[in-house]
Design a protein around this nucleic acid. Sequence first.
DNA 1: CATCCACCGGAAATAGGGGGGC
DNA 2: GCCCCCCTATTTCCGGTGGATG
Length: 417
Amino acid sequence: MFPLDEIDNIFEAAARSRVFKNREVLLPDYVPLELPHREAEIKRLAEVVAPALRGERPSNAFIYGLTGTGKTAVTKYVLRRLEELAKARGSSVSWIYVNVRQRETPYKVLADMGEQLGLRVPFTGLSIGELFSRIVKRLSKLEGVYIVVLDEIDFLVRKGDDVLYDLTRINEHLPRAKVSLIGITNSVKLVDSLDPRVKSSLGEEQLVFSPYNAEQLKDILSRRASMAFNEGALEEGVIPLVAALAAREHGDARRALDMLRVAGEIAEREGADRVSEDHVYRARQEIERDKASDVIRTLPLHSKLILAAILKASLTSPEGRATTGEIYDAYRQLASSLGLEEVTLRRVSGVLGELDMLGIISSRVISRGRYGKTRVVELAVSPDTVIGSLSEDPTVGSMVQSMSTKGLTGKRGRATS
DNA sequence: CATCCACCGGAAATAGGGGGGC
DNA sequence: GCCCCCCTATTTCCGGTGGATG
């Protein structure tokens, strides 16, 4: 028998990282104790929600800014503080945070809200209306101020949605409790597509978050890095590099912190004791690849097939591009070789649009005059990534693998420029 | 300069699998 | 059990449309 304490020693040694002191502070959901370069936004939001301390309903607010500009972090930061303060003064203020992108459908958003209010909600079966009135019923037994944060609210807006509208009017049903809403989005366009009634209600206050510049990113990164990494674990150029790369991608601080964390993880995996610029470059690649793989793996069957068709069509074309028609032909071949029913051209066109949104392909519609209007598609991720992710699928996997050899020879055959 | 290709992309409807309340 | 609901992927229907061609 191996002595227990020796096992412990092994774990202990492995657990003690050479580069990381506290890796968690680089994770996306970590809210730091201070949010540098967002002082003005914090102040604005604090002013907006402050009336809650007097038991008044704060104005609804609309927060807009690109991804990674601190919208979520600032909101959580301010509301946490507000709640603490309220508790200390004996007034009742609570907040509910729902990420609409993760909850996607109106039903799930309401279900999430309901659960946070202590309701037991079946994951399906109820009508939206029923669910809504249960929430109202629950809230009408309560008192105090409730601030509901709907993050990435874009996904709730899709045409003719009354849930948002109903939420803005929920106070009419409540005798004592007061609800105010904070909507967070990263698309300016959203504001226009909003139901005008919702727009005016939600837009009682509007906050705009501007992207961080490279200097600010550098500052944010070094503060965070000093908590996350051991002394001297970062080579000189690492932080400026990460900041520069992220600044180029519209100042996304989350992306920057991710890059830093993954660079650290790569360094650690390799047993290096310092994180180098090379680790950063590789981290950036790895992040892109993982993101794409995750998306591809969870695609529905026919979307995978269509992606395989794109792969096939683009690898056999000299430019690496393919049109909708070509993709459809390739798709039909693949489908019939697997003995599967085919989806229509309209659907393929729709899937192409989805894949574009997901960043797996990039495409634009062009007119070839006499020869019609079509969409030209090219892969936005490396063929190897696509092949790798698709081959895990039980249905299309083997087919993609056999295609990969042919495809890659085809690719090798063409000019490398 | 009208024509006409090869699709685009909106809207509505359906299928069919998940489940309620009563 | 009955009737209703939600959700996703898809079909059906169909009115556009940029620009090379004749």
